[in-house]
């Protein structure tokens, strides 16, 4: 196996000598991966990211980025990392173009090279027209994209995004996904946190779920989805029924006279269900998944972890 892009060993963070935000996290992210770090609010995602890019001081543990220890070899490590933080942290009174060229300067990149790159990324992210506006006057989604451009200006090999699509509209989110996929396709390793599981499912090949400062799951998206062995469908009926139909092998419940819910093992085919229903003269006009199945799985895991935590 090739060398990991990011390797975290036994990372612990105690805030203010009292609150344990991270409790011995270990994690490897492969080169070229698109990796999701998931977890509920306050789980420790931003803390982990903060430590990787030296915004937060760790209590214990080691981190290396492409084999460069972030403490011992901080200059090389920092050249390799680009970060998009969760909160806006650029100077609101500066112009996007200046923000990018300044950030490049901090990495020792000449203004002549920086301005070429700035133009490229501002154009790709649809901000070129706004380059000379006060960044305070950009919309929320534009501010996020500005931070993405800023993170890319020194062309890092590892891009870390902390909730990049929070507050971004659907259309823009799709275009951001495409942009990130393209960057990932060109060889940049990407780590992202998000509360939209659809986003993780769409983009990421591997995931870790973190809760209460611990990794509770670290697997591939494929095997995570395999764990979803049952699905619930909501069926809307064209005619009203009074009693809940009973069909061997399916658990069906009546929601109201026009709607039933059916729980089905994933291996089961749906054809049988439909033919049984039409035999009973029940015709279906539409159907949908009850909730995002990934969301349910996620909630199940976090709840299970909560139960284990409270037993201790």
């Amino acid at each position: 196996m090739d060398l990991p892009a990011l390797s975290i060993k036994n990372l612990t963070k105690i805030y203010n000598d009292s609150f344990k935000a991270l409790d011995g996290i270990s994690l490897d992210v492969r080169q070229g991966d698109f990796f999701a770090l998931l977890g509920p609010n306050g789980a420790g995602k931003s803390t982990t990211i903060g430590i990787i890019c030296s915004l937060v001081r760790k209590t214990e543990g080691t981190i290396s980025v492409f084999q460069h220890d972030v403490d011992q070899d901080f200059s090389s490590a920092k050249h390799l990392i680009g970060v998009v933080p969760q909160e806006f942290n650029f100077n609101q009174f500066e112009k996007p173009i200046d923000i990018l060229i300044t950030q490049a300067g901090y990495f020792g990149i000449k203004a002549s090279i920086a301005s070429v790159r700035a133009e490229k990324y501002l154009k790709q992210l649809g901000l070129w027209e706004k380059r000379n506006d006060f960044s305070r006057n950009l919309s929320g989604g534009m501010k996020r994209r500005l931070m993405i451009a800023r993170a890319l200006i020194h062309e890092p090999k590892l891009l870390i995004l902390d909730e990049p699509t929070a507050g971004v509209d659907i259309e823009l989110r799709r275009s951001m996904w495409n942009f990130l996929k393209e960057i990932n396709g060109n060889g940049t390793t990407i780590i992202l946190t998000t509360h939209y599981l659809e986003e993780a499912e769409n983009l990421c090949r591997n995931i870790a779920i973190i809760d209460h400062g611990k990794i509770i799951e670290n697997t591939s998206m494929k095997s995570l989805l395999k764990m979803l062995d049952r699905e619930t469908f909501v069926l809307d009926l064209s005619n009203e029924i009074d009693a809940c139909p009973e069909i061997e092998g399916y658990s069906i419940s009546l929601k109201d006279q026009n709607q039933i819910e059916v729980e089905i093992p994933k291996s089961e085919s749906l054809n049988e269900l439909f033919s049984e229903l039409s035999k009973k003269n029940i015709s279906i006009i539409s159907m949908r998944n009850k909730t995002n199945r990934l969301e349910e799985l996620f909630l199940g895991m976090v709840e299970k972890n909560l139960g284990q935590e409270s037993q201790k």
Binding site: V83, N89, N91, Y106, G108, R150
Partner: peptide, 16 residues
């Protein structure tokens, strides 16, 4: 101001 706006993070993530 740099600290207050968290703008100092631009410097802290850089190798300066």
């Amino acid at each position: 101001g740099l600290k207050f706006q968290r703008n100092i993070e631009e410097l802290l993530v850089s190798p300066v």
